[in-house]
């Protein structure tokens, strides 16, 4: 019983505390660099699209708000033919960013994306792709993956031996 009264007293004292909320939008929020807001698609250091259309973001998404279609250029480099995020469904959980094996999809500190029409919250690749490497500068997936997709020849990647000469029997 006493603890109840003490609780009530302590809660009552909160009347006089400084308020934790701020008067947004008059006063702007200070967001940290890793704040999980709007989703963007980044580019690799050479300016190429980082997204390889692996569908892992789509499958990780708990509200299934990411849809894409992978396609390839003549050199075998995968990229998304379209990449669509329905932000009216997005819950900004950041699972897509965690799932992304190429650091392509990233959540950035921007949340001011309200619209009067829900349809306007459907973002296509043009709306998502930014001209930056985002949080992970210097990473180029095709430099480390085994594929030859026009970025590097077979066997010239990091940690790779030159291609095997299959006509040789030497050890």
């Amino acid at each position: 019983m006493l603890s109840h009264i003490r609780t009530m007293w302590l809660v009552f004292l909160h009347l006089f505390r400084k308020k934790a909320t701020i008067e947004y939008p008059e006063e702007k929020v200070k967001l940290h660099p890793r704040y999980k807001g709007r989703i963007v698609l980044t580019r690799d250091p050479d300016g190429g699209e980082r997204c390889v259309g692996c569908y892992l973001c789509a499958v990780a998404c708990p509200v299934d708000c990411i849809a894409l279609q992978a396609t390839e250029d003549e050199q075998g480099r995968r990229y998304p033919e379209f990449f669509r995020i329905n932000f009216s469904r997005c819950i900004f959980c950041g699972y897509c960013e965690e799932a992304c094996p190429t650091y392509a999809i990233q959540l950035i500190p921007d949340f001011e994306m309200a619209e009067y029409r829900r349809q306007d919250l459907v973002f296509e690749k043009e709306d998502l792709l930014i001209n930056s490497q985002g949080k992970y500068p210097g990473y180029n997936y095709y430099k480390v993956a085994g594929m030859d997709a026009g970025v590097k020849a077979k066997g010239t990647g990091k940690n790779e031996d030159p291609p095997v000469d299959i006509h040789s029997l030497l050890p």
Partner: peptide, 14 residues
Amino acid sequence: RYSGRTAMWAHLQV
């Protein structure tokens, strides 16, 4: 694990 349910046709009708 089917994905993209809420975005597949969102460009046509959200």
